[in-house]
């Protein structure tokens, strides 16, 4: 039996070719290039625990999150103060910034038109996942 860390991350180590190669001059380093870059590797740390969600509305516009953006959400991460999270509020999924001071917990919109959601005493914070990236196509 191989001991497995609780949150064993799936990472791929691949040699990358980052230096520019002058045209017409074959670089010996080319032999070490193993394939093309895969955005999944860059954006997804825990493949099984990562989900893509679509943003609806403007409550997080101040954080650079716009209507229609695609969020990369990692459920393997523990949410901390300051993280942008997807939380369950009244049975619905909502994206907000997590604010934490001692026992006080708020889910804060980044848009003055939206009031922060303050969790009441005894009300448990239900974090669905932590937002780790925002993907937006521009055309």
């Amino acid at each position: 039996m191989i001991p497995i860390p609780f949150f064993s991350a799936q990472r791929l180590s691949r040699p990358l070719l980052l230096s520019r190669v002058p045209a017409g001059f074959p670089s010996p380093a080319d032999d070490y290039v193993e394939g093309s870059l895969d955005l999944n590797e860059h954006l997804v740390a825990h493949r099984e625990a990562t989900f893509f969600l679509r943003v609806q509305g403007h409550s997080m516009s101040g954080a650079g999150i716009s209507d229609g953006d695609l969020l990369v959400v990692d459920r393997a991460l523990e949410a901390g103060h300051g993280d942008i999270v997807v939380a369950v509020v009244d049975g619905e999924l909502t994206v907000k910034r997590l604010w934490r001071r001692g026992a006080r917990v708020r889910l804060v919109a980044e848009n003055p038109a939206y009031a922060p959601i303050e969790l009441k005493d005894g009300q448990e914070l239900a974090v669905w996942g932590v937002v780790t990236a925002i993907v937006r196509r521009v055309r």
Binding site: F51, F52, L53, R54, V55, Q56, G57, S59, L70, L71, V86, E92, L93, T94, V95
Partner: peptide, 13 residues
């Protein structure tokens, strides 16, 4: 199909 179709991703507001 929340996890297998781009057009059907879960919505979050």
């Amino acid at each position: 199909c929340y996890t297998t179709r781009w057009a059907e991703l879960p919505r979050v507001s």
